[in-house]
Simulated assay, not measured.
Amino acid sequence: MNQANISESTIEFDDIDVKALGKVGVLCGGGSAERAISIMSGAGVLAALQSRGVDAHLFDPAERSLAELAAQQFDRVFIALHGRFGEDGSLQGALEQLGIPYTGSGVMASAVAMDKIATKMMWLQNGLPTPAYAQIEAGADLAAVLVQLGLPLIVKPPHEGSTIGITKVEQASAMQAAVDLATTFDDVVLAEQFITGREFTVAILGAGRSARALPICEIVAPQGNYDYQNKYFTDDVQYFCPAVLSAELTAHMQQLALAAYRALGCEGWGRIDFMLRASDQQPFLIEANTSPGMTGHSLVPMAARALGISYDDLCLSILATARVKLQKLHQGAGR
């Protein structure tokens, strides 16, 4: 199988035999709250792959069954799904059962990265910096959470992306409404210490020790509000890629991103989000994305462009890394 060759300072792609990739499914849409964004990502990926001569076809798991997916006899699939049922390990498990190679992380890494609380626990166990947090369940003492974390703080549903259901709480009186909003998406809510500073993201390609970080992107949103609307539907957000940082801080943040990615067992590609605290330039890991957006506003294609990698080449190279992660177990069962 052709693989992308990722070096320390740049990324060069070996010639990929397009015909050897076979019939490809681009999985997008799905049933999550990020469905609309996934459809945009999928359309972009499909056009990119087809422009390179790939026999690619869209497939929406929310509209078609797993039996239909199996019947398509895809040789591999590009997962352009975001959020639940596509980025959380459930689809990855189905693809493992079907024996269809797929892009991105495997079942366990996808499930852990989709759960922001589990992600933070994993990072903390590995000595990686992430903001202090509290897990809020029904009947929790919100006053105690406010004392523990201080104000302002962030309240979010731990299994959603694209800033869906998130509230910045600046006054104690707003805490209950923030929790109520988050619980419309999740039974358990994550409250997180607010980090005042600059916002960054680091895209990563590869797996294990061969994984490499792309140039860091800085996100400057109006009034610091990098919400769903600003992310995807306005041109009000400014992006700086490569970010204006010292060489030392750049290297430190890229190494932290790689450590965070590897701690979760991620592979293929992904993105790690940061906040850089203004008071002392301390970076904090915020969350991991194992199936990042691929829209016109998305950050992984932006980081790739900073290295001279086109959107089409990026999509093709990610597709070339598709594999069944548990193939050794499949082989063992057949003996």
Rank of each mutant, 00 (worst) to 15 (best):
P61D: 02
S279Q: 14
Q97K: 15
I318E: 02
V324C: 15
Q92L: 08
Q176N: 02
K23R: 11
L66Y: 14
S279E: 15
I286M: 01
F240Y: 04
L276T: 00
V300H: 10
R209P: 14
G270W: 01
Q125D: 13
L98P: 12
T167R: 10
A191N: 11
A138V: 14
Q281V: 00
C241L: 00
G86H: 05
A247R: 09
R277V: 00
M1L: 10
L58M: 12
E160Y: 07
S9R: 15
G127N: 12
A4N: 06
L276N: 01
Q50S: 07
F85H: 14
A278F: 03
L21F: 09
A177L: 13
G293C: 05
G42C: 09
L276P: 00
Q135M: 14
C217L: 05
R277L: 02
E170H: 04
L181S: 06
V45E: 09
G206S: 03
G86E: 04
N289P: 04
A303M: 00
A109K: 07
D227T: 08
A260K: 00
L299K: 00
L153D: 11
V300N: 09
D313K: 06
W269Y: 13
G22Q: 04
G86T: 12
E160K: 06
L98Q: 15
D141A: 06
A140T: 09
F194R: 03
L299W: 00
Y228T: 05
T290Q: 00
L256A: 14
A303L: 00
R76W: 06
A306T: 01
E34M: 07
D187Q: 13
L314F: 11
A67S: 14
V189P: 01
Y133S: 12
R35C: 13
E160D: 10
K231D: 13
F233Y: 15
T196M: 08
L285G: 10
G44V: 07
T130P: 06
G104T: 12
I136W: 10
A207C: 08
Q125Y: 08
L214P: 01
I37E: 02
A144G: 12
P131N: 11
I216P: 07
V26S: 13
D88K: 03
D180S: 09
S51T: 13
Q254S: 06
S65I: 08
R76D: 09
T10Y: 10
Q223G: 12
L326I: 15
V244E: 09
T167V: 04
I16T: 12
P158H: 04
A259V: 01
K168P: 10
L319S: 12
A257H: 02
Q50C: 10
G104L: 08
Y133A: 10
M108W: 12
I318R: 02
I318M: 04
A260P: 05
L146P: 15
E218I: 05
D141W: 05
G42A: 09
L326Y: 14
E12R: 15
R52Q: 05
F200Y: 00
A182S: 02
A174P: 09
D187L: 04
Q171C: 10
V189Y: 01
I286Y: 00
L21W: 07
A62E: 11
A111H: 03
A71R: 07
P215K: 01
P158A: 08
M302G: 07
A132I: 08
A247T: 08
T163K: 03
P222H: 05
G30V: 10
D313Q: 11
C266Q: 02
L256R: 10
F233C: 15
S110I: 02
